[in-house]
Design a protein around this nucleic acid. Sequence first.
DNA 1: TGAATGACAGATTTCAATATCTGTCATTCA
DNA 2: TGAATGACAGATATTGAAATCTGTCATTCA
Lengths: 205, 205
Amino acid sequence: MNDSALTPERILAAAEEVLRRYGPGKATVVDVAQALGVSHGSVYRHFASKVALRDAVLRGWLERVMAPLDAIATSRTAPPARLRQWLTALRDIKRNKVLGEPELFATYSALAADAREVVGEHVEHLLGQIETIVAAGVKSGDFRKVDAQATALAIFDATSRFHYPGMAHLWNTPGEDAAFAQLLDLLLAGLTPTTAPPRRRKSAS
Amino acid sequence: MNDSALTPERILAAAEEVLRRYGPGKATVVDVAQALGVSHGSVYRHFASKVALRDAVLRGWLERVMAPLDAIATSRTAPPARLRQWLTALRDIKRNKVLGEPELFATYSALAADAREVVGEHVEHLLGQIETIVAAGVKSGDFRKVDAQATALAIFDATSRFHYPGMAHLWNTPGEDAAFAQLLDLLLAGLTPTTAPPRRRKSAS
DNA sequence: TGAATGACAGATTTCAATATCTGTCATTCA
DNA sequence: TGAATGACAGATATTGAAATCTGTCATTCA
């Protein structure tokens, strides 16, 4: 069954497959070992515990699935549009997962539910991206002179209704898109400078 | 054991007590009947089902516990301060319940979790109150000319991170108060008129 | 000699037998 | 005669014995 040496990568891939197939409640490390054609003891040479293995799978998934956000966060789009784009993308990623592959989403939500550490890092990463956009907006004059870090957190919190997995049960009710759009408008309005119109970084083409 | 006639009110009170004592997972209508010294069949004369009974208990609790909000929503405080006050009160009510009586909160959260109907009405009620305040602010010129209903929903959504029971696990982490204050600031900023300063309803005393 | 094994202890989960619960209704009670 | 009862059927929950799982480690293997 096994082709090459037993590496963390191969274990990770097998674990992911097993988790997909059986779900987080049923997947055992014996299953993973079996899928690799090795004894379950061997798995423990590469991962300290089942929790460590699950964490690693979750980490990989989060990285893969959230990749599009990195690109948006550092794009050259004007900050207001970029923030909209980024928040919309975050929402869409989760929403599409929920609606498109509910079981898979449930699986990863379950993993996330008892992986404080990993989720914490992930959230920090996202907050950093929002902060980048906000800071860019403040610098360009598109946004008020807010504390970028604190404001990033406020934005993240304000939108959690639309991206926190525990809220997923609300994501396919009618009016959902409109509600999100309204919230975005309100937040963007809250970032707009009150007095002078923002100076543009570049003249419009 | 029983003093007077069997009324819905007495059943409700007994049901509440039983729910408090045993929790929503253990409380049975047999328990409720026993507490009243009647057969469980009698309970069904007054409530069509266990679900109806649980709904009624939840409704009563929500009404009681959210009473302070009504007063704030219709007070004469200037809309911006009033909105802050109202949202803070909503948060404090839930937060104090979670931190002060976690088991009781868990009980009512569990009831709420499968009482879409009741919760829906409750949310509508809360939205109505926010709408009242927003509309007052628009009228007084303290707020931009927003759609009061849609904006009320946006405000409710934006703050759900701080009042939705599913988020309760975050409510006693450090920095929580600051995060809430930041969010409030951002939302209020989003409501502030961009151009002229708001005209006051009354001259300051 | 370093990687893999598999037997093992203690913890956790499964499963089916048993008990309890919900909701109904023919009967009793006052 | 209207309110209360309690036996009942089907659904749901509990329980504890048996099975499985996690993580370790002395041993085997190449």
